[in-house]
């Protein structure tokens, strides 16, 4: 099976996010009020071949742990959909 993976990488809660805070400070100056708790992460999209979704997820979790994230400061959430 082929799956499309969207990996959302965000800093752990509590780790300061200079990018998020800068965006948050800029928003009101552009007239966008009542927006708060801005956190800026990154999104990695890829295709993966695996026998089933659980296997695909397991392999991606390993990739996140060893390479795609720095577990000291970041965590990933993985969304999988069957690719056509």
């Amino acid at each position: 099976m082929k799956y499309r993976a969207v990996i959302d990488v965000q800093l752990h809660p509590g780790i300061a996010d200079p990018q998020g805070s800068t965006i948050e400070r800029a928003l009101p100056t552009l007239g966008f009020d009542s927006l708060s708790n801005v956190r800026a992460g990154k999104s990695i999209h890829l295709d993966i071949e695996a026998d089933d979704e659980a296997t695909a997820r397991e392999r991606l979790e390993q990739a996140c742990e060893t390479f795609l994230t720095n577990p000291v400061i970041e965590a990933a959430s993985i969304t999988l959909t069957e690719a056509s």
Partner: peptide
Amino acid sequence: PGALQKNRGL
């Protein structure tokens, strides 16, 4: 230990 993040103030 630890990690290096983007500077405060970007």
